[in-house]
Design a protein around this nucleic acid. Structure first.
Length: 151
DNA sequence: GCCAACGTTGGC
DNA sequence: GCCAACGTTGGC
């Protein structure tokens, strides 16, 4: 079992939005970065733990716990010419972009970015690495457990 | 709005 | 393959 941190802009899809969706599930559409895509395509398995993170907002931080509920499938938005995620180089035969589905499990208090940075046990966390911009990053079991204890 | 950091593109 | 230019991310 692996653990991940996934960033979402709450103005686009917030944790509360996901809680309101059928089955509390959402497809992680719109990722257009190969490293993040490869995590979804190759590494993310059903039942993997997910920290749901709000970015590009007033209070960036972890806001909920989720799990991977479906293995990666082609991202429909890449084929949609009206979508901002449209990719003219993608075809149905050879899709470029994939997304897993995640299921919201539990809303948490906001664990802010500042609080994560202050926590001694999280010094190696990928999210906190200088210059990190990846929207999906692996989380170690140790980090996962440390964060659950902060709740 | 600013800016650091990183990823992608495309000419050579 | 190199690398400059450009675009994006995301915190502040």
């Amino acid at each position: 079992m692996a653990y991940w941190l996934m960033k979402s802009e709450p103005s686009e899809v917030s944790f509360d939005d996901v809680l309101g969706m059928p089955g509390k599930r959402v497809l992680w559409f719109g990722v257009r970065n190969y490293q993040a895509r490869n995590f979804m395509m190759r590494d993310m398995k059903k039942k993997d733990g997910v920290l749901f993170y709000h970015s590009t907002c007033a209070e960036p931080g972890i806001v909920g716990i989720a799990e991977v509920s479906h293995l990666a499938i082609p991202d429909e938005t890449q084929f949609d010419a009206t979508s901002k995620y449209f990719d003219p180089k993608a075809t149905r035969e050879t899709p470029r972009w994939f997304n897993v589905e995640i299921k919201a499990l539990k809303k948490t208090r906001l664990i802010s970015l500042a609080e994560l940075r202050e926590h001694e046990g999280l010094g190696e966390m990928k999210l906190l690495a200088r210059g990190n911009r990846l929207s999906i990053t692996p989380v170690t079991e140790k980090e996962w457990n440390a964060i659950l204890k902060m709740l």
